[in-house]
């Protein structure tokens, strides 16, 4: 019995609270769009805030129910605070935010934003690879790093290397790495090195020193930058370069790939047993 009347009172307060919240927004909207008089607006807002404060009794003020004069005084105080906050946001902070956002949008080109997207993707992927404790997560982070680098290549007018990056690094090397991880997981232990490895603090210190030095160099060194940069497609130029100026490296690379192919097969295949050979010979 008591429970059901408490429940009904709670529901009523909840309804009044919702009504009050709706009222605050509705009155503000009426003032803004229907040119409701300022006095009437403030009065109605005060009523709505009072409704909200009374409704809040259902929740936060359950221990100390406000009613009568206390309620009116308390809601007046709340109304004052809210009015100040609203005035501050609307008249001071708002224009400032809108102004600076406008300036920011004027400052940042879409192109730059896309660059930063790729740069963050690359560096975050690399960081994930470096610091993740789970090697599978590291491998997936590497995917993002490779993708980001491919995006950067596009930015630099290197369309062919970008595609090669996606095809070979992601399609080839990353798949190989995932295979290797899964195989080594299966045998229970990682193939460990006997050399001592350094702890994470030393590693982080090394990263800071290396990155700091190289960044200083990147920013400060007097690189001689050409005035005009080309974004023309490069595939045809690369093809010609490979068959004229860089013919020798191209051919040597093919010999290296052959040797690597044979070598990988030698190492990975099953051993030819001498007994099998003699069987074949007989």
């Amino acid at each position: 019995m008591a429970n059901s009347s408490n429940l009904r009172a709670w529901l009523v307060r909840l309804g009044v609270l919702a009504l009050g919240l709706f009222g605050i927004v509705a009155v503000a909207a009426l003032h803004r769009f229907a040119h409701l008089g300022i006095g009437l607006t403030l009065g109605l807002e005060y009523v709505a805030v009072t409704c909200v404060v009374w409704g809040l009794n259902a929740f936060v003020f359950r221990r100390l129910p406000l009613s009568g004069l206390t309620l009116l005084v308390f809601s007046a105080a709340v109304f004052g605070v809210l009015f100040l906050v609203a005035y501050f946001v609307g008249a001071v902070l708002g224009p400032f935010l809108i102004d600076s956002a406008g300036r920011f949008i004027g400052l940042v080109h879409l192109v730059d934003l896309v660059f930063y997207l790729f740069a963050v993707m690359t560096v975050a992927g690399a960081a994930g690879c470096a610091f993740s404790r789970n090697i599978i997560y590291s491998a997936w982070s590497l995917l993002f790093a490779f993708m980001g680098v491919a995006g950067l290549y596009v930015f630099l007018g290197a369309d062919f290397p970008a595609v090669a990056q996606v095809l070979i690094y992601i399609g080839g090397i990353l798949v190989l790495i995932l295979f290797a991880i899964m195989l080594t997981k299966q045998i229970g232990g990682d193939p460990k090195l006997t050399n001592a490895h350094l702890g994470l603090p030393v590693g982080a210190a090394l990263a800071v020193i290396t990155a700091g030095t190289l960044t200083y160099m990147a920013v400060m060194a007097p690189w001689k930058i050409e005035p005009v940069q080309s974004y023309a497609p490069v595939s045809a130029g690369l093809g010609i370069a490979f068959l004229t100026e860089y013919l020798l490296p191209f051919e040597v690379a093919s010999v290296v790939l052959l040797a690597a192919l044979v070598g990988a097969v030698i190492i990975a295949r099953k051993e030819i047993k001498e007994t099998q050979d003699t069987v074949l010979e007989s």
Partner: peptide, 18 residues
């Protein structure tokens, strides 16, 4: 390229006893 050639083949020959 030549350093890598030497390295890649050396890896294989080192692990020749598989």
């Amino acid at each position: 390229l030549s350093v890598e050639t030497v390295s890649l083949v050396s890896y294989v020959l080192t692990g020749f006893h598989r």
